[in-house]
C-alpha cells in the first residue's frame, strides 16, 4: 500500500471570520500502480486534499502515511517526499519561468540535489516522454501553445521521477484536441513508467474512460470510494451533489427509460457502443 489518508481535516483561515472547513474527516487508500480519479464539484475540496498529500498543506487533524511513514513527522524529509509524490497544479503552465523549456524542466531534479548532468538526463527523458521534439527543447516556454506549455510543465514534474503523479484538473481550459492529447499522455506515462496516477477532475467523461477507481468529494466530505461503474450507478445521488454521469451512459439511461431492454452499467464509449449494437442485433 502506497498512500493512506487517515481522518484528514483541513481548515483555511482558522479562528477568523473567514474560516472554511475545506476537507472534513476524509480517509481512503491509494494503492501502488493504480489509476485513481477524484471527482467533485468546484469548491468541494479536491485541490486542498491533494495538496496535503505532499505536505504542502499541513492538516488540522488526521494524517497521511506514505509507505507506512507519517509524512507530517518533524524529521520526515519533505523534499524527498515531493520528489516521490509529484504534484502538477491546475494551470501548471503559469509556473514556467526559465528562458527555455529544457532549463525549466531541469529545475525540479536539480532541487532534489542531482548533478547538472543527471538533471539534464532526466529532463531529456521527461521531455521525450511527453512528446517534445529535440528542436523544441530550447524554445522559450512563453512562445509555446497552450497544450504544449502544459506538457512542458508536466515534464517538469515527471523529471523528478515521482512514484505517484497527481494532476489537478490537467485538462481545464484546453480545447477538445488538447484535452484528448493530455489524457492520452497520462495513459502513456502510466504504461511506460508504471507510476500511480491520481487524476483530479470535474469531468465525468474524463474519469469514466480512464480511472480504475473513483473518489467522490462533496462539500469537503468523501461520499463515494468505489469502482467507476458502481459510483455512476448512483446517478440520482450524483446529480444531487452537482455532478452527473458520463454522457454515453446517459444515452443508455434514456433508452432504458423508454422501455428498451438495455444494461445501464456501461460507462465508456466502447462498452456503450457494444451494448447498443447488441440491442440492435436482437
Amino acid at each position: 500500500m502506497s498512500i493512506i489518508v487517515d481522518h484528514l481535516t483541513y481548515i483555511y483561515a482558522k479562528d477568523t471570520a473567514y474560516e472554511t472547513r475545506a476537507v472534513d474527516d476524509v480517509s481512503f487508500v491509494i494503492n501502488d500502480g493504480e489509476y485513481l480519479g477524484i471527482l467533485g464539484a468546484t469548491g468541494s475540496g479536491k485541490s486542498t486534499l491533494i495538496q496535503t498529500l505532499n505536505a504542502l498543506l499541513i492538516p488540522d487533524s488526521g494524517t497521511v502515511y506514505f509507505d507506512g511513514k507519517d509524512i507530517f513527522d518533524k524529521d520526515y524529509d519533505k523534499k524527498e517526499l515531493r520528489g516521490n509524490v509529484g504534484l502538477v497544479f491546475q494551470y501548471p503552465e503559469h509556473q514556467l519561468f526559465e528562458t527555455d523549456v529544457f532549463t525549466d524542466v531541469c529545475y525540479g531534479p536539480k532541487n532534489l540535489g542531482l548533478s547538472q548532468k543527471d538533471a539534464e538526463l532526466r529532463a531529456y527523458e521527461a521531455l521525450k516522454l511527453v512528446g517534445f521534439k529535440d528542436e523544441d527543447f530550447y524554445q522559450s516556454p512563453f512562445d509555446l501553445s497552450g497544450g504544449e506549455k502544459r506538457k512542458a510543465a508536466i515534464a517538469g514534474v515527471l523529471a523528478m521521477k515521482p512514484r505517484v503523479l497527481i494532476l489537478d484538473e490537467p485538462t481545464a481550459g484546453l480545447d477538445p484536441k488538447g484535452r484528448w492529447e493530455i489524457l492520452e499522455l497520462i495513459k502513456k506515462i502510466r504504461e511506460e513508467t508504471g507510476i500511480t496516477i491520481l487524476l483530479v477532475s470535474h469531468s465525468m467523461d474524463d474519469v469514466a474512460e480512464n480511472a480504475e477507481r473513483l473518489i467522490v468529494m462533496y462539500k469537503s466530505h468523501l461520499v463515494f470510494d468505489d469502482s467507476p461503474v458502481n459510483v455512476f450507478s448512483h446517478y440520482e445521488k450524483m446529480k444531487e451533489i452537482g455532478l452527473d454521469v458520463p454522457q454515453v451512459m446517459q444515452v443508455l439511461l434514456e433508452l432504458k427509460r423508454r422501455g428498451f431492454p438495455v444494461e445501464t452499467d456501461r460507462i465508456t464509449l466502447n462498452d456503450v457502443k457494444s451494448e447498443i449494437l447488441r440491442l440492435l442485433k436482437r
Binding site: 495538496q51 515531493r82 497544479f89 501548471p92 509556473q95 525540479g108 532541487n111 523528478m160
Partner: peptide, 12 residues
C-alpha cells in the same frame, strides 16, 4: 499558488 507549485518541484 506559485510558491506551492515550485515547492512541489523541490524549491526551498
Amino acid at each position: 499558488i506559485i510558491m506551492k507549485a515550485q515547492k512541489a518541484r523541490g524549491a526551498d
